[in-house]
Design a protein around this nucleic acid. Structure first.
Lengths: 197, 197
DNA sequence: AAAATAAGTGACCCTTCGTTCACTTATTAT
DNA sequence: ATAATAAGTGAACGAAGGGTCACTTATTTT
């Protein structure tokens, strides 16, 4: 009936931690949301903290699988339109994928309490995106689509505003449509500023 | 001996909430940090939540005083160097001012739990900076320092990366020096890209 | 100086929390 | 089929949480 209970517990923990934080979450509610009684959880994890650590393991592994390896990099676009389209695909995914949204929220809430969360937060919010776009900008320079410049600086200048709007969506979901439009507008503005004319 | 105890409680609450979050903070510790016993706090605030609300009132008022009014806007710079220098002054202040740092941390931790925190977080992290820099860029366009463009878009594109680095300082203080250098480099890069040559 | 009010104390209350344990019910291995 | 193991239950525990209250000590007010 449940070998996957362990995983279901992590999913429920991700859900609750992302809404109420680690301290604000209690084991009774967490168990109840899985349809079992509180003591049942302790057959799978020895403590609340163990759940937290397992969840972090999962988030770290998930990040590595999904964004860590170079083969997951999107191809270098061939035009400004393609570049904007690629950005919008990625932005929509990261804004609407529930698992990723919850992960960002958890990292936001626990970044000051847990060192691994701190580290992963910086990847999610800052360095990961920059590292992802640096080779893309480098490739676009090689293709003569944009002016030659420091690709890492461009990647930072490009991804940080998008990241800020993603945060806005996490914080105020009702502004999502607006934020997506803004990402589009910013993206076009950015590429126009660096385009070779 | 203490009419200002009410204010001292708020200061201690800001400190503890910014480190451990609202849920993670307990009244006993909070009182102890002020050298009084837990029941003493209830002579000044009727509940933990009342402290939280008063703290939010304070943060909102403080923000209004400090960043809300147009007369606190820095003057439009006369050169790129001056522009960068102004940015660095502001960045250093916001990164090193303890009260502001703690406020940002609290807002980060409680933004999903409290609507007023949510709203103030968006101001602190996104719209406030953009609104502050929009007239500056408009002014610089008028002075012919930078190309004519949408000043609000420039303000957003300029402040969001800086905001991201400020967040990095909050999260990983040991990276502060690095982040400040990066703000400087980004600032110069940005102005160079829009400068009228 | 006396009365009234505010600030601070310490013991206590109730609730919630994480965790344990003896037990029953499924599931798997032999 | 039976033994062994895993999964799930429900009552209970101690610790820690927020909050109250009768009381003492300072500080104001008159």
């Amino acid at each position: 009936m449940a070998k996957d209970t362990k995983e279901r517990i992590l999913a429920a923990a991700l859900e609750m931690f992302s809404q109420k934080g680690y301290e604000g979450t209690n084991i009774r509610e967490l168990s109840a949301s899985l349809g079992l009684v509180k003591s049942g959880i302790y057959k799978h994890y020895e403590s609340k903290e163990a759940i937290w650590n397992a969840l972090l393991d999962m988030m770290i592994a998930y990040y590595g699988e999904r964004f860590g390896s170079p083969e997951h990099l999107p191809p270098v676009p061939d035009s400004s339109e393609e570049f904007v389209a690629m950005t919008m695909r990625m932005a929509n995914l990261t804004i609407h994928d529930e698992q990723i949204v919850k992960t960002r929220k958890v990292l936001t809430l626990e970044q000051f309490r847990d060192d691994r969360a701190r580290e992963l937060a910086t990847k999610h919010f800052l360095t990961g995106l920059t590292e992802m776009f640096t080779p893309i900008f480098a490739g676009m320079m090689d293709k003569g689509l944009i002016r030659r410049d420091d690709p890492a600086m461009l990647a930072f200048a490009y991804t940080a505003p998008i990241s800020a709007l993603i945060h806005l969506c996490d914080r105020e979901p009702e502004k999502t449509e607006d934020a997506i439009r803004k990402i589009d507008a910013f993206s076009r503005h950015f590429i126009a500023a660096y385009e070779v004319r």
